[in-house]
Amino acid sequence: MEAFLVSTGIVALAEIGDKTQLLALLLAAKFRKPIPIVLGILAATLVNHALAGVVGNWLMSLIHPDTMRWLLGGSFIAMAGWMLIPDKLSENETRFSERLGVFGATLLAFFLAEMGDKTQIATVALAAKFNEYWWVIAGSTAGMMLANAPVVWIGDKTAKSLPIKLVHRVAAGVFAVLGIAAMIGAG
């Protein structure tokens, strides 16, 4: 359960103000059909984070636990720094194929936007840290949905009222604490 809760919290915090949250807002404004958008986000996240979880679990089987501890610690500290860099959505990520429909466009756009994103890399690291990588996948997906579904349903009024810099600083602090804890062998 720890893997699920930690993954949910970290990904939800990391996602606030992230480019995929901006993408959710753009999709909501463009299509104005929240149900297929939320379902597209869910499907894309499940596939993307399942792949990330499998990669993290596979890395854990290849790398000696002492080495992995230092790699994880370093990656969490790097994530802390990355959290402090604001995300911007590129023009390529805002183009949608009308032929795919709302669900298909959301699925494709979200899947591609998540490739190499903070939350995907965090999912890899968390899956390597926790043996129960399926709980990490479930938690990281829940965190994505907690951060993105309200943006789709409520729109930019809620997103603009969040103190994004403060949320990013809190998330960076959580990643830093996890990194230090991993390096000293805690947890």
Rank of each mutant, 00 (worst) to 15 (best):
T123Y: 02
P65Y: 09
A181P: 06
A113W: 03
K157W: 10
G185I: 08
A28Q: 07
H64W: 12
S97A: 13
G73I: 13
V11F: 01
T158R: 09
K19S: 12
A43Q: 05
T106V: 11
E114F: 04
E132R: 11
L107V: 07
N148A: 07
A43H: 02
T20I: 08
K160V: 02
R32T: 02
I180T: 12
E132Q: 13
L162W: 15
L112K: 10
V167S: 00
M1T: 12
F31H: 04
S140M: 01
L107E: 05
A28F: 07
G185Q: 08
F175H: 07
A52K: 06
A149E: 09
M144E: 09
I16D: 05
G155K: 08
W58A: 08
G101P: 14
G155I: 11
T45W: 02
S75A: 15
M183P: 06
G81T: 04
A14I: 03
I137F: 01
T67F: 13
W135H: 07
T8P: 00
V38M: 13
I180P: 05
K33T: 08
A109I: 12
R95D: 08
A125K: 01
A52Y: 02
V174F: 14
A181H: 01
F175A: 04
A149N: 08
L23D: 06
G139P: 05
F103M: 09
F4M: 04
I164M: 11
V136S: 03
L62P: 03
S61L: 06
A50N: 00
I154S: 00
K129S: 10
M68C: 08
A109Y: 11
K88V: 10
V170A: 08
I85L: 15
A105F: 09
L72F: 11
V54T: 06
L59Q: 03
K33H: 11
A138Y: 05
E114A: 10
